[in-house]
Design a protein around this nucleic acid. Structure first.
Lengths: 215, 215
DNA sequence: ATTTTATGCGAACACTCGTTCCAAGTCAAG
DNA sequence: CTTGACTTGGAACGAGTGTTCGCATAAAAT
């Protein structure tokens, strides 16, 4: 039994369940499904619900009212916003304390791809347009995965000890053959930054960039 | 009654409801709340639930099992992906048919700001790096709000009838004093495109840009 | 001291709701 | 035609569940 061979009735039931959950934030009862799908008997609803379970399209909690769940659901994740990328101080390590107290954004797991399961993601708001060279603009939100190292080409947030003192910046990361680190702006007209490895402390890899426009 | 002056018991109940919903995708019953919060009587649970309703922290559907909803919840929105920005054909108007059949991405309403309530948003995947001048890269997903007109500075997807025939492009929109339209790349080193208004057909305004990085 | 208000407990009621059983209809295979 | 699997319908049972009522306790107000 796959998704392919469903009866019209079962398809209609599934659609109703989905729309009901969307509308009410809780699942429908067997009788509500029956009424909506023109099924007079609860046993028939129950029968077809079991078919949907076998097809893997729903999950049921036995003996529990409204115990229908839609699996493969896209989860929402709360990601703490630890600060802005302009901060010159060290980014605090995210923990449960930060999670509950500070600001946060909520995003759906489908946007994170294979990083959806990473538990200690954190977000930074980009202040100012100094990061425009990395295709990241003022007001953008970047979601990062904590990391101490990076692969060539990764976009990283790093504390760099450069000419202007310590600052947090967003650049593409490359390890040169001479052991130094090259922080490459995305804009080809801007020159890369060459630094000794000890002057670059990687805070995390950027896994997502979100830009909200006034539209 | 505001959120401030809740009893410990009421706070505990609210926390339990939130975690229960997160876990089970459906709300708890009065008795489940009572058991979790060490309340022996269902009437006490009911009593305190009414307090939470007065405080605006929950919504209840009367006489319905598990009829508790958490308001101000961040909703997830399904946005149909109608194609890529490289398409040279007209973007079909989104309707319910597209919604259910085609591909789609799901995002949280908090990312959309005041556009969260717009019902006919659609998404396009950016193919190729020709849009890099608008701070949008290959593989990015742009979410658009349907529009026939735009304000100066808006980022729009538009069909332009230019030198290379009709094509769909992503640019910043400006209306010149002489009635013509200027499509301005974000990159200052690239020259704007001046066109007569009849050769520019706006498809929609970009309200969100999402970029997923391999990280 | 008395009343009022807020909160809590237990019990009972009525309706909701999942479950189960039996009968019947449909339809393709043998 | 007969068989058997699949599907549907109707009914009833029992547990789940929201609601309501009376009463008790404590604290604040009068």
């Amino acid at each position: 039994m796959t998704q392919r061979d469903l009866s019209d009735r079962q398809r209609k039931m599934l659609e109703y369940i989905q729309s009901f959950v969307q509308e009410n934030n809780y699942p429908p009862t067997i009788r509500e499904i029956g009424e909506a799908c023109d099924i007079s008997s609860t046993s028939v609803v129950n029968y077809n619900l079991e078919k949907l379970v076998k097809a893997g399209l729903i999950v049921r909690d036995e003996k529990i009212s409204r115990g229908i769940q839609l699996p493969h659901r896209i989860e929402t994740l709360r990601i703490p916003t630890l600060g802005s990328i302009f901060a010159t101080h060290h980014i605090p390590v995210p923990d449960s304390a930060n999670m509950s107290s500070g600001e946060a954004i909520t995003i759906t797991s489908d946007l994170l791809g294979r990083n959806a399961k990473v538990s200690d993601l954190f977000a930074l708001e980009v202040k100012g347009d100094s990061m425009i060279d990395a295709m990241v603009n003022d007001g953008d939100i970047v979601v990062l995965k904590p990391a101490q190292t990076a692969n060539n080409g990764d976009m990283v947030a790093a504390m760099v000890n450069g000419n202007n003192g310590i600052e947090l910046t967003l650049k593409h990361f490359y390890r040169e053959t001479d052991g130094r680190v090259r922080l490459q702006p995305a804009n080809p007209t801007m020159r890369p930054l060459y630094l000794n490895a000890e002057n670059v402390q990687i805070q995390g890899k950027v896994v997502l960039v979100v830009r909200q426009l006034p539209g």
